[in-house]
Nucleic acid binder design. Structure first.
Lengths: 141, 141
DNA sequence: GCATAGAATTTCAAGCTCAAAATATGCTGG
DNA sequence: CCAGCATATTTTGAGCTTGAAATTCTATGC
């Protein structure tokens, strides 16, 4: 790999991080209006249905121990419950409460407004999705 | 915006965050072999020359107060110096020491190996760069 | 059966990050 | 000039994140 290639790659990483940052800022700002922190909102957003701690961590792109931390916060706010997993006694099943489901709906509506990706056309978003998917999945790690 | 569009957008955000996470993991892993944490390595990588705290924060996509924190760490390790800015007495100029420049070179070599973006061809990386650039800059924030 | 390896979650310590307030300096209109 | 607002950095407190160790349970091989 040439020196220029390496530099271009670093620049690309910077762009990815920059966009991720913008997305995070957007979530943080909207979450604040509901009394949630950004990670709490991310967890709520990802809880599309009952799932285990591991699944939540995976969807949040974080360590399981961090998912525990965030789930604790949501549980203390009465937004979710930890139930025994139906078939695996090692695992827990996370289930939103009525309050949790309601707040999640409000959150989703807020998040869909003024998205950081609004600058891209549908076609561009589709192309970006394709490229990112390839970058992410073509990597063992 | 339709419901499906919003869902597609959330998925896209997830991909961006997932890739950012992979990049971060890669940096962390390589940085550890040099006795650096991930943010310290990121700062070292971005210090392409003398710059102010604000510039560093901008390049690291973080808050200025966080740049202060990281710069403190690097300074304690003797990798950089804070000098008075030549023309603005409010600002500081960050300058790598000899050790800092040397470690930076080693870091750059490590980071260019097994990049998380290696799964993409040159053409794909170029297309990705283009799309991300558009997404990031087409947004006032 | 039972030992052993593996998996899901939690706990804990260390370090990172943000936001707000404090400090110091620069700039500009009256 | 200089008052007032803007900018650059630091400090501080609260909350987030990671990685390693501990706990509990599952699955496999003998």
């Amino acid at each position: 790999m040439t020196n220029e290639d390496a530099q271009a790659e670093r620049e690309l990483c910077g762009l990815v991080n920059g966009l991720a940052r913008q997305i995070g800022d957007h979530v943080r700002e909207r979450a604040a209006t509901l009394g949630l922190t950004a990670p709490q909102a991310t967890a709520l957003r990802e809880l599309t249905g009952p799932m285990t701690m591991g699944e939540l961590a995976e969807r949040m792109s974080c360590e399981p121990s961090n998912a525990t931390f965030v789930a604790d916060k949501l549980e203390k706010q009465g937004l979710l419950e930890r139930r025994p997993h139906p078939t695996d006694r090692r695992a827990r099943q996370l289930v939103l409460t009525g309050d949790g489901r309601e707040l999640r709906e409000r959150l989703l509506r807020l998040l869909s407004q003024d998205s950081p990706l609004a600058g891209l056309t549908q076609r561009e978003q589709s192309a970006l999705h394709d490229l990112l998917d390839r970058a992410v999945t073509r990597r063992p790690g």
